[in-house]
Design a protein around this nucleic acid. Structure first.
Lengths: 116, 116
DNA sequence: CATCTATATTGACATATGTCTATGAGGACG
DNA sequence: CGTCCTCATAGACATATGTCAATATAGATG
């Protein structure tokens, strides 16, 4: 889940051609990771955090959920390629992967001059 | 699920400010709808179909899944505001809602000159 | 009206998912 | 070295989800 979501230089759009089953599976995993309110908020907090990163303690403080639950969501986001983590001393800092978001964003933007 | 995903003229980005719990819930429902390979392929087929629309028969033909299963996925996509349907004679035609995709696309595109 | 075709709904069932508690692992620090 | 502190993993459990077979609904057509 670290490689680009699409095979090649084709920078995509859902409408370009029928999504192959394989690509659809990879993509679905990423969107599924986004398909939870807590994970969306985590992503939003990390993205908006000063320095572009947030430690787990910042996140657990932002929710009324157990620390393991937050940890679980972070794992899902990381495995979807949406976050990276780095340990510094006792703390683990998470950052968003902007390229990943950009890929999704591009995929969802339909060609403006679509054939109608 | 037909209203815009964000309250106001704020055209968004995940990083702009911590996503409120309510917005996150609405958004998550939409991303969850995208979080299935079959639904992504359905969306792709409809988006890429001549005339911008496809009838259910086009879709059932494209998968090795039962007709009720396809119907179920269409319902999920429709309730997420990603598709609309229109009945003409015996057939029901589905179309993507480009505004909805555009909203998501905008939300996922981080501000380029992000504060680092 | 009877019937056929296209699509939707219902109910059932196996699997996936989100959450928790309990516990483990990695460093800091006395 | 023992003890905190921060974070991750494991296991359990209730609920959600994807799928199917069976059935219902809507419109066309004889």
């Amino acid at each position: 889940m670290r490689e680009p979501l699409e095979p090649d230089g084709c920078e995509s759009s859902l409408a370009r051609e029928p999504l192959a089953a394989g690509q659809a599976g990879d993509l679905a995993r990423v969107f599924k990771a986004l398909g939870d309110p807590v994970r969306l908020r985590i992503l939003s907090i990390v993205a908006g955090h000063t320095g572009g990163e947030a430690c787990v303690c910042d996140l657990t403080a932002a929710f009324e959920l157990s620390q393991p639950t937050i940890s679980h969501h972070l794992k899902v986001l990381k495995e979807a390629g949406l976050l990276t983590s780095e340990r510094r001393a006792s703390w683990v800092y998470y950052r968003v992967v902007p390229e990943r978001l950009a890929e999704l964003s591009a995929l969802l933007s339909l060609p403006t001059g679509a054939v109608t």
